[in-house]
Design a binder for these strands. Structure first.
Lengths: 159, 159
DNA sequence: CTGCCTGCAAACTCTTTGCACGAAT
DNA sequence: ATTCGTGCAAAGAGTTTGCAGGCAG
């Protein structure tokens, strides 16, 4: 789905919940979708402010749940006390993450079997699965030899 | 491994790093191993203080890394901004978690294939895996019907 | 006009840290 | 005696919230 379609989806989502279409919310949306890799709330604030200087930190934190609940963004928690977000233009389902401990780069990996696993395991316990997370933390071989992580430039090749 | 063996392991670990065997550290150890399910730093503080009233919050936070680094405790981060800990008497490797969203109960599930997955995926990216996390968040069927979660009493049957 | 939205700043939660005293070796 | 370990309280990071004014519908 292209960004224009996503923007429509956001508008529809807001309308369906009787939420208002404010300049700040659109600036935050645009800032989020201008970024192709992971970002933090603080980074999003910076970017959104370049589009609309009036955006405040509070509005960022109040808008992020709207974007994640509408599946426009995915929230990625890698166990640090900070959350990362990622535009989700394709409305993709669960993905796994591989986190490079040397440069913090997060690779998104498709992992369709996660859904199957969730259903299998949860059902056994009398539960209905809602979401899954699968993350691999790893060290970079190149970094170990050269002291430099190549991931910043290689970027996350979506599998 | 029984608790006595774990206590020895802790003593050995401290000795090997030239760390001192203090009453507070032992009280924290004992409090942690007296609990069979997951606990937070704050809960551990309460329990440890019953064994040694002088234990402070700072010492809890300073001791937890020692216990996790020696594999005596496992740290479980389920994406809330609080960390859970779990005594790991059997020195078990990676496990998956199923989290009941209705009662917050955490089930520990053995998932040996996680290691395989980590190696497979990380290697493809030129990385060497360090750890894996696999978590399923789910709603409780019983809770949906009766408004009560049975997990508190059923406890986590280790798979 | 109405009431949802906003920015500001203070509050909050969990965790970490500087300091001077205290205890293990 | 050394030196590491400790409690205390303050700091820190990230996020949330109360309030009074502002803007969308």
């Amino acid at each position: 789905m292209k960004i224009e379609g996503c923007r429509d989806k956001f508008r529809t989502y807001l309308a369906s919940r009787n939420l208002r279409l404010t300049n700040q919310r659109m600036a935050i949306f645009d800032a989020a979708f201008a970024e192709s890799s992971h970002f933090t709330a603080e980074e999003l604030l910076d970017k959104a402010r370049r589009l609309d200087a009036s955006v405040s930190r509070a509005t960022i934190y109040r808008t992020l749940p709207l974007l994640t609940e509408s599946s426009l963004l995915r929230e990625v928690d890698i166990g640090k006390n900070i959350k990362y977000y990622l535009a989700n233009p394709g409305d993709q389902p669960q993905q796994a993450q591989v986190i490079c401990l040397d440069c913090e780069h997060i690779f998104e990996i498709s992992a369709p079997f996660m859904d199957w696993y969730g259903v299998t395991v949860a059902t056994k316990l009398g539960l209905t699965p809602v979401s899954q997370r699968l993350q691999v933390s790893a060290h970079c071989d190149v970094f170990r030899r050269s002291g430099q992580c190549p991931h910043h430039t290689a970027a996350g090749k979506p599998a």
